[in-house]
């Protein structure tokens, strides 16, 4: 899922400094799972904000609410009656959630309280690892389930660069070379042929804003 990390408290406090009534909104989706923006983090953030505000000798009205998913307009709707009472919104959702919130309430400033970092996996409680950059052109089929876009510093598609050194990346001796791992994995599966084929140039799709429509729904949405 999407993984995020809370912004430094100072940055958040700075963003809301001009507003008296602040509504902190959590999301029950990905950011909740990765302990960055669920209900509990909303309460923690408000408690911490209260303390810093007190230190500065000011105070604000800090409301809190958590919705199921901020990336869905129907689910944001339940906040309609609530937001009128606030001067700004602090969204603890991922970048998608923040933007949809800002779209739904265009007259109220919406500030992000977390940094959306990547699509990744749960390594341990509170520890998450990047796995996917959402490039829109998945190559995992021929790379043995190891993503060269995420793992290789240069995002190479046809084997390692000249900088690979004893299985490490030239960027740092602590980073394993993605292409060595791909080679080893495919060798183990007897699939080395997979990387002998020359892969064409990636049609980088993430330069423009994309929309996903599932095939079943194409008829419905594509004119």
């Amino acid at each position: 899922m999407v993984k995020a990390k809370r912004k430094p408290l100072e940055e958040i406090a700075d963003a809301i400094s001009a507003y008296g009534k602040v509504l902190t909104v959590g999301c029950g989706g990905c950011v909740s799972v990765c302990l960055a923006g669920g209900q509990r983090e909303v309460q923690e953030l408000n408690a911490e904000l209260e303390l810093t505000l007190k230190e500065k000798g000011t105070s604000k009205t800090l409301g809190n609410y958590t919705v199921e998913r901020q990336c869905n307009m129907d689910l944001l709707q339940e906040m309609d009656d609530m937001v009128g009472g606030y001067d700004c919104i602090l969204s603890m959702a991922c970048g998608a959630g923040v933007q949809l919130m800002a779209e739904r309430y265009p007259n109220i400033p919406v500030f992000p309280a977390v940094n959306t970092v990547f699509i990744g996996v749960d390594r341990d409680i509170g520890m998450y690892e990047e796995k996917c950059r959402a490039c829109g052109e998945c190559v995992l089929a021929y790379t043995g389930g190891i993503c060269p876009v995420t793992r290789c510093a240069k995002g190479l598609f046809n084997g390692p660069c000249g900088g690979t050194n004893n299985g490490k990346c030239e960027v740092s001796q602590e980073i394993p070379c993605a292409w060595l791992d791909i080679y080893e994995r495919l060798k183990g599966q007897g699939r080395l042929d997979d990387i002998l084929k020359l892969q064409g140039v990636m049609q980088w799709q993430n330069q423009l804003q994309r929309t996903v429509v599932q095939p079943k729904f194409e008829k419905r949405y594509y004119k």
């Binding site: 430094p8 408290l9 509990r40 309460q43 923690e44 408690a47 911490e48 303390l51 810093t52 230190e55 390594r123 341990d124 520890m127 602590e174």
Partner: peptide
């Protein structure tokens, strides 16, 4: 327990004073 290295340049954030106490923990 998994152990990973702290990325260079990543400084630990200092929580505001008052977040260490027992009463604060009770509040949450």
């Amino acid at each position: 327990e998994q152990q990973i290295k702290r990325p260079t340049g990543l400084v630990a954030e200092v929580p505001p004073a008052g977040t260490e106490g027992f009463l604060y923990a009770l509040k949450l």
